[in-house]
């Protein structure tokens, strides 16, 4: 009985403050553009500096680690997607 009345009484003064900054599509676009700018800025120095290699000369190519990271992740996503067809089951599979 007391459980019912409590939230109603308490919720009025303690409504949590809300941050809605990302609700605006304009702000999402801003975040995305900043992200792209950062990507470009990260690869740019590779063209002007001498890079060391660990095993093969390909590692010194400009943007090697960027390409490596991107391809790795795409590979991981595709492999897990494929494995998902074999491994995924409904939540009450074991019940």
């Amino acid at each position: 009985m007391s459980k019912k009345s409590k939230p109603a009484a308490a919720s009025v003064p303690t409504t949590p403050r809300e941050f809605n900054w990302l609700d605006d599509p304009k702000n999402i676009r801003l975040v995305r553009n900043v992200f792209y700018a950062v990507l470009v800025l990260l690869v740019l120095p590779d063209f002007f500096m001498h890079k060391h290699t660990l095993f093969y000369s390909v590692e010194a190519w400009p943007g090697f680690y960027a390409v490596f990271g991107f391809i790795s992740c795409v590979g991981i996503i595709l492999v897990s997607k494929l494995l998902g067809y074999a491994l995924k089951r409904s939540e009450n599979y074991y019940d």
Binding site: F35, V74, K88, S90
Partner: peptide
């Protein structure tokens, strides 16, 4: 570079990463 381009891959392939109500064997 490695990390930020991983992030790029995440957002580009987001539709494939959408969560489903499943468990995995």
């Amino acid at each position: 570079q490695l990390l930020m381009f991983s992030a790029l891959a995440f957002f580009m392939f987001l539709p494939m990463l959408k969560r489903t109500e499943t468990i995995s064997i």
